[in-house]
Amino acid sequence: MLLIRCPYCEEERPELEFRNAGEAHIARSANMAGESDDDFEKFFFIRSNPKGIIHERWRHMHGCARFFNAVRDTVTDKFIMTYKAGEPKPSKLPGVAK
């Protein structure tokens, strides 16, 4: 069971309290109804599924109930960092070579 740092609770908490919510930083269009089929496909269906660093959404479901973002390495399954929902993608990742 992983330990995940909740940026709102400001501490690491057991994975059982959390739920993954898919890839992060996929913005919903402000003009949703006007999106082209291609753009909607990209928005709704296409995910990066990388080997390595992924930005993803988690919810501290059984804790503070907040959604937040995390940077995780899909190879090592290690969390690099977490940050609050709405904050930009971190430009620098601690301990990760660019």
Partner: peptide
């Protein structure tokens, strides 16, 4: 509830 919270917290905060 989760669906509503998701949109409220992340799309329509």
């Amino acid at each position: 509830m989760n669906h509503m919270e998701d949109y409220l917290q992340t799309e329509f905060p």
